[in-house]
Write a protein that binds this DNA or RNA. Sequence first.
DNA 1: ATAAAAGTTTAGGTTTGTCTAAATTTTGTT
DNA 2: AACAAAATTTAGACAAACCTAAACTTTTAT
Lengths: 219, 219
Amino acid sequence: MHSTAEENYIKAIYKLSGGGAHGVSTNALADALDTKPASVSDMLRKLSAKDLVHYVKYRGVQLTDDGRRVALRIIRKHRLWEVFLVQKLNFAWDEVHEVAEQMEHVKSELLVNRLDTFLNHPRVDPHGDPIPTENGEIPQVEQKALSALEVEQTGIVCRVKDSQPAFLQYLNRVGIQIGSHLQVLDKIAYDNSLEININRNKTVILSSDVLSKIFVIKP
Amino acid sequence: MHSTAEENYIKAIYKLSGGGAHGVSTNALADALDTKPASVSDMLRKLSAKDLVHYVKYRGVQLTDDGRRVALRIIRKHRLWEVFLVQKLNFAWDEVHEVAEQMEHVKSELLVNRLDTFLNHPRVDPHGDPIPTENGEIPQVEQKALSALEVEQTGIVCRVKDSQPAFLQYLNRVGIQIGSHLQVLDKIAYDNSLEININRNKTVILSSDVLSKIFVIKP
DNA sequence: ATAAAAGTTTAGGTTTGTCTAAATTTTGTT
DNA sequence: AACAAAATTTAGACAAACCTAAACTTTTAT
């Protein structure tokens, strides 16, 4: 079995590599995990010895197939617990991440699968992130970053790619949630921010940083 | 905040002291926690420094009020999660202990209280052990060990004081669960075992060891 | 092409929680 | 009361996961 620390490294590598698409640097990991680069080097040597990552000194790290399997299992647990917290315990979407970070390390196959059944095999978590299946598949939905919409176009919010409370609370304040109907009214060329109408009601201006974290499907 | 190891020591001290009734020896703790007495001595020094226990070298250890508060919070979490696993995820009573051992260390006040509400403020866990309230009170129910029943007397099983799968599976096999109606048919003086009729149906002989772990209320 | 800057690793420590072996204290027996 | 046995603590190590400081690679900019 893997320690909590190991699991957190593997999860971080998975996320930073975009699901295994590219290698990840020591500094990026140190940053994501809030540790020092020296500690990351140590751990990478260890994970490499366990064949969970492919690691070449000074050249970054990638998950092996084994590592990716571990990552997906942890992410599956994390997202299922988030669904549980929101749907069953009435947590708000900005309150779940920290708790799920702890629950994702509970070890029990039976538990995960029973939880999945109890929740009716949800496909996405409260932020719209897809939940890996038991076999490690990730159902993909066609979606577009809000920053890619043109003036006049509309979309339904299906995902927000940042689970930090501060960001989610900002969206609460603005009035955006999963399912919100958005229309681009205007583009401000100066900084690529967009003027967005929410649910044919309120209108706001969103920075390109925020726009890149919100994903929509066609209405 | 306390580490998982600290929490496990505190829980073990609580249990071995019978809820704080008497002191606990180093060896007893080592035994319960499956560590060496030397490790226990170390940890007791540490817990004592944090004022969670009252510890006199060579003379055993007791929880302070602070320690008892911590113990009760952990036990509350443990038992609530057990209820969740059985009632919501269809775990059997012999499958919950190990998983709850992990879940009890998840830190979130909000989580515990929401869980309690979700489960409808249960008073006992699946083994009949009472669930401490948010204020650290333990609802006491008048109950008797099965070993204390006389011939002819009857009782309803309300609690089994051993959560080890092997014991619970033995009860499954025999056909005893919470709520079972028991009647003492005969006492075997030789070893204090009792002949017990279960649900006015099957009859079995239970050893005094088993009898002392089963508790009943008046029918 | 090379030197400075940036990124990464190694060396040597720290803390937590464990261990074994040795020393100490308490208990129990005669 | 004294001594052997049992229980407990201390001393000294170790692994995991982290740290700082120094050394080493790679990248970038001139």
